[in-house]
Amino acid sequence: MPSTTSDRLSTTCDPQGLTPMRTARLRRYLMCRPTYFDVVYSINPWMDPRKPVDTSLAVAQWERLREVYLELGHTVELIDPVAGLPDMVFAANGATVVDGRALVARFRDAERVDEAPAYRNWLHTHGFSDPRTAELVNEGEGDYLLVGKWLLAGTGFRSDPRSHGEAQEFFGRPVISLTLVDPNYYHLDTALTVLDEDTIAYYPPAFSPGSLAVLERLFPDAVIATDDDAAVFGLNATSDGRNVVLPHNATGLAEQLRGRGFNPIGVDLSELLKAGGSVKCCTLELRSGDQENQNS
């Protein structure tokens, strides 16, 4: 059964009360084993078909990520991979699921368009009775991140800015548009991560001046990632409100998170980074209708 926000895992607080209390809550995730993972085309700056890919290593690294989620008590469901869709492992791109409603992605690139029907079919048969395929290009949780009552929505390289209005009408939640300007950070989830309902971490150079001003206004206490941590996709992370799973070599970001009372857990997904993806890319959160504050 889907978890609710009352399913608390653990709470942490500095003995002197100097760091905030952090509460972890159970999550329900969807993942896709990288059985057919490869880099055979290039649709972002990270992808180079000339570089060899070790699919068995990618599977082993992905399995470790899945184990971490299970060890933390989260539910992990699996969608079957489809031959000929090497990027299907990046489940976050398949849809956005909020309040029990699923908006299925409409991919920009021809190489990925067949992923959308596979995710729609899975959602339809696993408790989401009426998943809707987006009319405008959006790439799921790659560009839509739920924080508190808002959806932060990225554009600039993949998702059509008009899709933000479509998402707002569908979910009935305020959508905050953010423009990405660095092609290395082509999805919002490569440049920003949600830590809890009030806290985010992000990489300022990835955003336009106006979008950066919005982030500074909305999240004055945000964690700011360094160039080095952003470059290893340290912000492509997941959080249950206390435990933050992130690339193991984002060491500076991990130290910042620890200082804020979070528990960073590093994993190695270096093989999947060859296609421009890491922890969050592999993880689609399934939020049921009774999960009002999934990011707390």
Rank of each mutant, 00 (worst) to 15 (best):
G259H: 10
A24E: 06
S288W: 03
A230G: 05
Y185R: 11
F219T: 04
L273P: 04
H187Q: 10
Q16I: 06
A116Q: 07
L273T: 14
P209M: 00
E135I: 13
T5H: 15
W150P: 01
E271D: 05
D80Y: 00
N263D: 12
T19E: 14
R66I: 03
G140M: 09
F233A: 12
K280A: 11
P52G: 02
H126M: 02
A230L: 02
T5Y: 13
L123R: 01
R173F: 09
S211L: 05
V53A: 00
A110S: 12
R162N: 15
P45K: 10
A83F: 14
S163F: 08
L146H: 11
D80V: 01
V223L: 09
N293Q: 14
G210H: 10
D14I: 03
I176R: 09
A213K: 12
T179G: 10
A237Q: 12
Q291V: 10
L30F: 02
L65N: 01
G277P: 05
N243Y: 12
D7S: 10
D227E: 15
Q291K: 05
N249H: 12
A95P: 00
D38Y: 04
F90N: 05
E115G: 08
L273Q: 15
L286D: 05
L284S: 06
F171R: 04
V97R: 00
G100M: 02
T4N: 11
F157E: 11
G165V: 07
S129L: 05
K51G: 04
V223C: 01
Y69G: 01
T199M: 11
Y119F: 15
L30K: 02
T133N: 12
V39P: 06
L212R: 13
G94F: 06
A167N: 10
F37A: 04
G289C: 14
H187G: 07
P2G: 08
F207K: 01
G259W: 11
P86C: 05
L178K: 07
D87P: 00
